[in-house]
């Protein structure tokens, strides 16, 4: 079982040859591939991280813009509402004023007509009272 012979050195030489061949056929090309893949992945990762940062910056920018325009829109709405209220109040005041004026005018007209009617009535009262006087007194007098 323990018989050493020329198998030993030849096996060693054979192993060294195998090592050289495997180094050329297996270790070198595949290690190169692994290294290249590593650097590829790393560069891609860096690239992706840059893009992610850029996208996040854009998101932030957009959000800021969105907030600004929302504030602007709110301000616009508020000012428009204020203006509308002002206009409404103004119109209401005008309308009330006009209504007041018309009412006063109508009142004046009414007063005037009343006075006229009273005057006319007064004249007729005179005439009628004279007639009545004539009729009552006229027979006795006449």
């Amino acid at each position: 079982m323990f018989d050493f012979d020329a198998t030993l050195p030849l096996m060693a030489i054979q192993f060294l040859i195998l090592m050289v061949l495997l180094n050329r056929l297996f270790f070198k090309p595949l290690m190169k591939t692994l290294d290249e893949r590593d650097s590829y992945i790393r560069s891609n990762q860096v690239d992706a991280q840059e893009r992610l940062a850029k996208a996040q910056r854009l998101i932030q920018q957009y959000e800021e813009e969105l907030a600004a325009s929302r504030r602007e829109a709110q301000a616009l709405v508020a000012s428009a509402e204020e203006e509308a209220q002002k206009i409404a109040a103004q119109r209401l005041a005008e309308a009330q004023q006009e209504a007041q004026a018309r009412r006063e005018q109508a009142q004046q007209e009414l007063d005037r007509q009343k006075a006229e009617a009273m005057q006319a009535l007064e004249q007729q009262v005179d005439a009628l009272s004279r007639q009545i006087l004539d009729k009552v007194l006229g027979a006795s007098v006449g």
């Binding site: 079982m1 050493f4 012979d5 198998t7 030993l8 050195p9 096996m11 060693a12 192993f15």
Partner: peptide, 8 residues
Amino acid sequence: DINTTVAL
């Protein structure tokens, strides 16, 4: 075989 292992 002992020769192989001793060689290695």
